[in-house]
Computed example of a mutant assay.
Amino acid sequence: MWRSIASNALTLMIVVVFLLGGLVLWGQGQYTDRGPLLEAICVRVQPGARLSAVSEDLVERGAVTSGKILRIGADYTKKTNQLKAGSFLVPPHASMEQIVDILTRGGANTCGTEIVYRIGVNSSSVQVRELDPGTNRYVQKAEFDPAADAPVPAEFTEMRERDDTRYRVAMAEGVTSWQVVDTLSRVDVLEGEVATVPPEGMLAPDSYEVRVGDSRQALLDRMQAAQEATLAAAWQDRAEGLPYDTPEEALVMASIIEKETGVAEERPQVASVFINRLEQGMKLQTDPTVIYGITNGQGVLGRGLRQSELRRETPYNTYVIDGLPPTPIANPGRASIEAALRPAATDFIFFVADGTGGHAFARTLAEHNENVAKWREIERQRGEAAGGTQTD
């Protein structure tokens, strides 16, 4: 009898072991298999949040089938107490294992809200944006001019109070160093004074992530280091026979190219025009340099050039001086720097707007005059003032 009892007990133990093994394998499969989430969601983890609350939120939102299995898996991998505060994008069909990794990995937020301080050529603005997890695109919630005497949108105040809001400073191509420093003085998440305006042209246009309390000077240093690296790389890869003795001279040319066209594919052609003029001993004759001589880069002129200004002798009036002006006239982007150092091979020495946002290029003055006539007709049809200049 005892032998029978022992045999039955052993059988039962084996069955229990197999059942437990099967249960473990099933749970492991549940933890690592594709999840039920049909569309991406943004999961916000509050500072000090516990995994139990987060897991139940994931269940309610259809991201996982069992909060308990998620917690057991996180405990087994020793990640239960490693939750990071912030907002994190959970992709469709993410497994529990992937979700735990996303919520415990740390680093920058991958979704949620973002406040962008934009430094533009003609104006600056603050944009409040929120990521739409379904499209993985930001949706603008509000925008305002920080220099304007107007109430700040409620969305901005609300986002500023959230712990997971990210901040960016987005610097456009073609802005001046003075404009950058002036705008940064109104970026309220940054701190500290800027002793001097950085050299013109030596700040890299880009989007920079910043944190509350970051130094304005430290951000400018990042911008300058990035531009130095871009210029050095482009100079190393430059074409032969260019009319520049130093990288700084190439940067001056790049800034002129930047101000003359916003069409990316045109930049090598525009570069070729100015290089051809230099090589033929012609004056550059470009309006943006004249404007810089008037404004010193401190804001925009806001009107057309006067004939007297085109005749006035200043270090930046390329209708009067020979060669390049003494410094850049703006901060050029990478594409303009590369165009200045690897220009297109053309015979063009003239260009004028063609009415499409681009330019018509010409090899001779006769061709150029025909293009100018076409452009003036387009202006006339649009009801705009012909020529873009004013007389005194």
Results as ranks from 00 to 15, higher is better:
L51P: 11
V43T: 09
L83G: 13
S55F: 06
G62N: 00
Y31W: 08
V59Q: 12
K84W: 13
I69Y: 04
E56R: 07
V64H: 10
A74L: 08
R44A: 15
R34H: 02
M96C: 04
H93F: 12
D33L: 07
S52Q: 07
N81D: 12
D57L: 01
G86Y: 13
E97N: 11
S55H: 02
K79D: 15
Y76A: 15
A40Y: 08
I41N: 06
L51N: 01
V59M: 07
D33N: 10
E39A: 08
L51Q: 07
D75E: 05
Q98R: 14
P47D: 00
L70F: 08
V64N: 12
V45W: 13
L38E: 02
Q82G: 02
L70C: 04
L83A: 13
S87R: 09
D75W: 15
T65E: 06
L51M: 11
R34S: 14
D75V: 00
I69E: 07
T65K: 14
V59Y: 06
K78G: 12
S55P: 00
G48S: 13
V90C: 06
E60M: 10
A53Y: 00
I69R: 03
K68H: 03
R50E: 00
D33R: 05
Y31R: 06
V59H: 01
Q82Y: 10
P47G: 00
V45E: 13
L83I: 09
A74G: 13
S87F: 09
Y76I: 15
P91E: 02
G62P: 04
A63S: 00
V90N: 10
K84Q: 11
G86Q: 07
F88D: 07
S95L: 05
A40F: 11
Q98G: 11
Q98D: 14
V59E: 04
T77V: 11
Q46S: 14
T80C: 10
H93G: 01
G73K: 09
N81M: 11
L38P: 02
I41E: 01
S66P: 14
P47V: 02
T80A: 09
I69A: 14
V45I: 15
R44H: 11
A63W: 00
E39C: 01
V64C: 07
A74F: 12
P92T: 02
S55V: 03
Q46D: 14
E39V: 00
M96K: 08
R61I: 12
P47W: 02
R50K: 10
D75P: 06
S55M: 09
Q82V: 08
S66M: 09
L58C: 01
G86F: 12
N81P: 04
E56Q: 03
K78E: 12
E39T: 10
L38S: 03
T65H: 04
N81S: 14
G62W: 03
A85N: 11
M96V: 00
R50N: 08
R34M: 04
V59T: 04
L70A: 05
V64R: 10
T32R: 15
A53G: 02
P36K: 07
P91N: 08
L37Q: 04
A40G: 04
L83Q: 07
K78T: 12
G48I: 03
V64G: 11
P36F: 15
L58S: 15
F88W: 15
R50W: 09
V43G: 14
G62C: 00
S52A: 02
Q46W: 13
Q98K: 12
A49I: 10
P47T: 08
P91D: 10
F88S: 15
